[in-house]
Design a protein around this nucleic acid. Structure first.
Lengths: 196, 196, 196, 196
DNA sequence: CATGAATGAGAGTTCATTCAT
DNA sequence: GATGAATGAACTCTCATTCAT
């Protein structure tokens, strides 16, 4: 596959991403993507053979690009509390962003694909996030910033709360206040008197 | 509509429920339901005019039938802790039941319908659950069973954790241990040394 | 068939008439009529077996009821010119009445049924109208009211003009002025200086 | 759309025309046309989206092709009477042609579309025909061929008679004699002793 | 590589007609 | 007589997928 092909493939994935953002996963058809990309019907099949495959590659691209909220924004002398706060604010932004989110599509995709299967990417992301938060809390505890008896349990709890907020955002709707309240609840639990 | 019609309508709803359990909401077609019910194409349209309408009535039936976990099972001398425990165990059972659950279908339905709209039933259920748990905790605190500074915040937090577990069960998969750990985390937070 | 049955049949025909007025002939379904009559689906079949049959009976009823514009309204001492004028004014009213007319339905019905067949009722009506007008003109000529060389030809011509106006009313639309102009044209041809 | 597409579109329109000729407008389905054209169900939708659209284009094609009876057949030294006669004979041919006529379909189409609306093509054709005939009569009068007091009125009258004959041909049936008689009536009115 | 015409399966929906009650 | 539930055929329309160019 030449350079040009790679470019085109990337173009298709980026355009398709937008389609998934707008329609979720299940309702997207090859035709939708063809039309969004302004390419020929047959053309799409040269690169991909199903919406499932396209969506998988969209998610892959997404995770490659989003990667490191942390490494990008963290200064030398940031405290654990700073970093945790940064992470939570990042999540808040994501939660409240109604558009430009793949959230629904990802949920729909995982509804019918591979829950419990090995290499469930979503699970890996979840677990890795738990680990990072755990470490962070441990550091905070060591520094005397936080108070926490069960760092891993707390990290896991935080992640489930975030998941709960995420799905609620898509189904019952949540406001900035709701998120702030949950964030403050978490921080207070860690012994911080937070002002979100 | 006669008695017989009512029976048939109920039969269709129960059969359709199973279809939604198996395929979620978006992918279900009128044809799927017709075939599952073993009735004629036109027959279904005598009772319902769209999968959306059917699904709404399925949810309604569901909520009517599930209604009162509490009132049914609570004895005179149950403590607040007993009742909370009962509630959490009930949730656990629901969470782990992979089959026979409308969860995915409900999420899919709300993905494309009425988030943020008035009379979002899901939201009402969520809010009412928060209130019940809040009351329960207050009673527990008054009785000296629990320790809790922010009853409402805690109730809300519990519900978001449960939501997080619910969606996780459908996407990344969860085990009984995961649920138990979260339940214990909650109980410990309320000052109970729990044995799940 | 009892008295009650006859009443019901008449009720159905009158209600169906309205349906044909609104939708023409081809697009009317048995269901339309059932719903308009507020009777049961099976019930209609006890009396009629197709929209065609119903329409035929509607037309029959119509012609029985409309019968005699002439006999009803003509005074003893009316002149031929008076009567002709009365007839033409009657036609004008009918032509301009956009609603409550079976015209379209009748045309549609005859489009697919029996043109050229014996007992084409429409043809009989046309021919009989020509004859009446012819007689009228003859009387007028004898009385010195009209001038006319070819009474039958003129009568026929008048009827074709009226047909032309009738179909034009349904397709290109006509105004009262258009009708008046044509009536005046006819009258002038007969030697009358008409004020429509 | 390539040359081939244009050819195919034309092929569909020509085939569809035949279907409309046979069944009128209202009863024609996309399926009828698909089958007549011997193409696939979806194929037709690549070119047209409804029977209405197809019919409109059929009429357009028809009018483009029929256009100029006059310009094609009129010699240098033709008199007004010659031309009028030619026109009337042309109409006669059309009137008596029972098959291969769109007449019924056109009537049905206009029954449910745009009577009285702006750009009612049928109305424009009618009005333009009136104008042409009027001019023709004026020329004839100037040349001493015709006698006529109200050229416009006469032209309009001729057109309504022709309309009357046209609809009568479709509903009660007419013979060549009937048409001839009407043509002679018209010619005599203009002062010509005609031999149809 | 790329196009887009073409196919045909399949979903939605409506109705004429029948038939048990 | 009367009802209206039920059936199944027929129609509309959309798409995944293929294939000649």
């Amino acid at each position: 596959m030449g350079e040009k092909s790679i470019q085109k493939k990337k173009y298709i994935l980026e355009t398709a991403r937008q389609v998934f953002v707008e329609k979720g996963f299940k309702k997207v058809t090859m035709k939708d993507i063809v039309e969004a990309c302004n390419i020929s019907r047959g053309g799409l099949y040269l690169y991909f053979e199903s919406t499932s495959q396209i969506f998988q590659e969209v998610m892959k691209l997404e995770s490659e690009e989003t990667d490191d909220v942390f490494s990008d924004n963290i200064t030398e002398d940031a405290t654990a509390a700073d970093i945790l706060m940064l992470f939570l604010q990042e999540q808040k932004k994501e939660l409240l962003r109604r558009k430009n989110t793949l959230t629904q599509a990802i949920y729909e995709y995982y509804f019918e694909n591979q829950p419990n299967k090995k290499n469930n990417v979503l699970k890996k992301q979840f677990d890795s996030a738990v680990k990072i938060i755990e470490k962070l809390i441990e550091i905070g505890v060591d520094n005397g910033e936080f108070y926490c008896e069960d760092c891993q349990g707390t990290a896991r709890n935080i992640m489930f709360v975030l998941e709960g907020l995420k799905i609620s955002a898509q189904t019952i709707g949540i406001t900035a206040e709701t998120v702030d309240r949950e964030i403050m609840f978490i921080l207070k639990f860690l012994g911080l008197e937070a002002e979100a």
